[in-house]
């Protein structure tokens, strides 16, 4: 399984998806988040593998 975290929420997805597909799958916009693994940025074409833990960071701020 691939674990995706975003603002206290968590999802488990099957391995084999690309970062961009995973972001869309959990209902977010690829333009509104960055995907990070072990502190490093991932480009959206990276294929997620079994055991990956991905943190999505919201890039949107402001009131």
């Amino acid at each position: 399984m691939v674990r995706i975290k975003f603002r206290g929420q968590e999802w488990e997805l099957k391995p084999g998806l690309r970062v961009k597909e995973a972001i869309k799958k959990v209902g977010l916009s690829p333009n509104a988040v960055l995907a990070v693994k072990g502190g490093k940025l991932l480009t959206e074409d990276v294929v997620l593998r079994e055991g990956d833990e991905i943190e999505l960071i919201s890039v949107i701020s402001g009131g």
Partner: peptide, 25 residues
């Protein structure tokens, strides 16, 4: 700081940004 100011919650600008990002996608 990654959290928002508590008073920013529900701000219209956040909704506009969300909509613009959907367009951008």
């Amino acid at each position: 700081i990654r959290e928002e100011c508590p008073h920013a919650l529900g701000a219209k600008s956040l909704l506009y940004k969300e909509i613009l990002n959907r367009l951008e996608d």
